[in-house]
Design a protein around this nucleic acid. Structure first.
Lengths: 163, 163
DNA sequence: GTGTCTGCAAAGTCTTTGCACCATA
DNA sequence: TATGGTGCAAAGACTTTGCAGACAC
């Protein structure tokens, strides 16, 4: 799979064409779906959303498009612990730096970008401390908060096989 | 699957028997393997480790034992982005609160428990802020640092399909 | 001795690949 | 029109389940 031309100008769609890839309906649709939500979507979510608008679109294309966007750095993967990968536009792709809230009940992952500069500062310091301590070259971090989302809390019950 | 008697006394092994489950060789071995490393292990890692010591032990038992320990809260799952679940003794199980370092190259996950009280304090404050803001009932958090481990850095090259 | 646990084999779920046709540039 | 992209079907990887024999208590 190609990985040239990974630039940072424009939107994911125009970077696709600028990279020599074609702008096709499935690709436009998936990018649009990913752009228009605070949630991380599974391949199936995306397939259903795209297929609803154009029934000719298949699941294979969804996986292949996600793999392409992933290789281009436009999309990142998140896992909720149920064995299904979830996808979101990456920070490289223009999304703000964000963290995640995972519902242990419905496994939905929501992101939020509103956090303190104190937090950013601390993470930066922690990263360099870890580099010194363990010899890792650290490129980033992700924070997941686990809990029960308002919708599931309203339904009552907080069970399930959680992390 | 049963889920009674989830107590916090003793070690994972004795909690198993206290919970009415039998102490069998595969179970003892898996707990021992998980206890004796700073790494998160895949089902296959555990299978190989256990099978090496007793070739009669099969992969099915590894999965079933992990499911049991998971339901008992003794073990938690971590995902490195390669589609394989990784397991470690949970904090409930006596492991210290810890965070993770994921190598984007070899996908190995290492944990570390040495962090500042400042960090703990900040996370606690962040959690309650999120509860107010988004209405989640937050039960915990996990932090992953992404990067390249010393071993992979030494081998040169930092590519791969990363998050 | 009884009920749980185990191993093997088969099945299930999510994801990837092969191939011929279609569409974008 | 020449490649790259797509859909379908089949294959692959990881995990779970069914069943008969084995073991812990």
């Amino acid at each position: 799979m190609k990985q040239e031309k990974r630039n940072r100008e424009g939107d994911p769609g125009s970077r696709l064409t600028a990279g020599g890839y074609r702008s096709t309906e499935p690709r436009r649709l998936l990018i649009e779906l990913l752009s228009s939500t605070e949630e991380c979507l599974t391949a199936e979510d995306l397939y259903l959303g795209a297929h609803h608008r154009n029934p000719r679109i298949g699941l294979t294309t969804v996986y292949r498009t996600l793999a392409l966007l992933y290789d281009l750095g436009e999309v990142s993967r998140v896992e909720a612990g149920d064995g299904k990968a979830r996808y979101e536009l990456s920070e490289h792709s223009g999304a703000e730096h964000h963290h995640h809230l995972i519902c242990a009940q419905c496994r939905r992952i929501r992101r939020y970008a509103e956090f303190s500069s104190e937090e950013l500062e601390l993470m930066r310091r922690t990263e360099s401390a870890l580099e010194k301590r363990f010899g890792y070259r650290i490129t980033g971090h992700s924070i997941y908060f686990h809990g029960i989302c308002p919708a599931c809390a309203a339904k009552g019950d907080g069970g399930g096989r959680n992390a």
